[in-house]
């Protein structure tokens, strides 16, 4: 079946696509038919920057197990790092600190 269901979220970071690195602003997750993977359905993740056009996109098509393993690995990696180390708030805080110095 086609689920059509698309979870969208704002994101802040960078990704490497077909034409090199770009800033990512938008994420989408949907469980649907893949474009390239050979499974009937996959968890499809897009990291994109629509302001730079449709080609500014990194696409991932994972099995359910693969997607959950990715989620778990992200949680483990974050848990092992000092809290807030990779937070967007930390970057804003250091930027305002250097501005006031």
């Amino acid at each position: 079946m086609c689920t059509y269901l698309t979870e969208k979220f704002r994101i802040d970071g960078a990704a490497k696509g077909a034409s090199g690195w770009f800033t990512v602003t938008d994420g989408m997750v949907y469980v649907d038919h893949p474009y390239h993977a050979t499974q009937e359905h996959t968890v499809n993740i897009d990291l994109a920057n629509p302001s730079e056009g449709p080609s500014a996109r990194v696409a991932i098509e994972l099995t359910e197990e693969g997607a959950l393993a990715l989620v778990e690995a992200i949680h483990k990696a974050l848990a092992a790092a000092p809290p807030g180390l990779a937070s967007a708030a930390r970057r804003s805080a250091s930027a305002s600190a250097s501005a006031s110095a």
Partner: peptide, 20 residues
């Protein structure tokens, strides 16, 4: 309409983001 020279899979993702 998602752009000339854009690969069909990227066009499809952009169209999906707009609700089809």
């Amino acid at each position: 309409r998602e752009g000339a020279g854009v690969s069909p899979d990227d066009q499809a993702a952009a169209a999906r983001a707009k609700g089809g």
